[in-house]
């Protein structure tokens, strides 16, 4: 398990991976991948009980992570590669013909670490609820984690799952939201008037934790607090406040980098701001 300083170093490398992958692919979603990088790094290198050894889609005897916001594929692929699920050199194939690293996560192409396809939004939370329910039925002690985008939370199905999970006592489920406040067409509040997510999740019967999604100690503490939800009968939602495009000055805090690839010059500029800590792929 990595300590805080190690996690920060991994996160820096993951951001480099994201920039290089999306630049090479000439398309993709760097903004949300970078806002959720610190959380995803903490999850895979400290929080989750997971291992690439003998990995199967059943998730038996392991914690599981379901990506609901499928366009955040770049950050998922980078942490999976860095955690040893597949060779890091494969990251360079993102979005290329014949690659296991599809534009949005797929299970058809057999990429280890991916439990379920994602891309059409609002569905992964339900999948995670089902996976967590199965673990309860099988008296397994593990958790299921799921990442939702704040824009994604506009989907009605999210709130169907929100009502279902506490009703069925799914307290081994830890959902978290990358609350960066941006979506393709603008700020989340200007597009959809989403308002205070905390009040909404509480009203649906969830434990709600808020934390700074770029403060590694705060992230780890939030996940620890979330784990204490087991036995309460309630699922937990962690609302991580984040900045889209975090870590690169010209990409931070704007929806313009939701789904746009950097130019080669922008890529160079970005990489100058991110330390190469583990060796580029």
């Amino acid at each position: 398990m990595a300590d805080t300083e190690q996690l920060k170093k991994i996160a820096s490398q993951v951001r480099r991976d994201i920039i290089r992958m999306v630049t090479a692919a000439k398309s993709g979603h760097p903004g949300g991948s970078m806002s959720s990088t610190d959380i995803m790094t903490a999850l895979y290198f400290s929080v989750m009980k997971q291992s690439p050894e003998g990995w199967t889609r059943s998730g038996k005897g392991q914690d599981m992570f379901i990506l609901s916001a499928g366009h955040l594929a770049p950050v998922l692929y980078s942490v999976l590669a860095r955690a040893g699920y597949f060779p890091k050199e494969e990251l360079g194939t993102l979005r290329k013909f014949g690659s296991r690293l599809q534009g949005h996560p797929s299970v058809e192409h057999g990429l280890p670490g991916v439990f379920q396809a994602a891309g059409s939004l609002g569905q992964g939370l339900s999948v995670a609820v089902g996976a967590a329910l199965a673990k309860k039925m099988d008296k397994e002690d593990n958790f299921v984690y799921v990442l939702c985008g704040d824009g994604e939370t506009e989907e009605g199905q999210i709130w169907e799952a929100a009502m279902f999970a506490p009703h069925h006592g799914v307290d081994n489920l830890i959902a978290f939201t990358d609350w960066n406040g941006q979506q393709i067409d603008g700020t989340v509040d200007s597009v959809a008037g989403e308002g205070d997510l905390g009040i909404k999740w509480k009203a649906f019967g969830w434990r709600v934790i808020s934390a700074d999604g770029h403060d590694m100690d705060a992230i780890l503490a939030a996940f620890e607090e979330a784990k204490a939800g087991k036995g309460t009968g309630k699922p937990t939602m962690i609302l991580f406040k984040t900045d889209m495009g975090h870590g690169v000055d010209f990409m931070a805090g704007t929806h313009k980098w939701h789904g746009k690839a950097p130019s080669p010059e922008e890529c160079e500029n970005a990489l100058r701001q991110l330390e190469e800590t583990l060796g580029d792929y």
Partner: peptide
Amino acid sequence: FIQCGIAESNMVGVASGLALAGK
């Protein structure tokens, strides 16, 4: 037996999650 309420979309997703575990 799992009662999902009038929420078919969620039911499909929950079922797929259950199926991952071999149900």
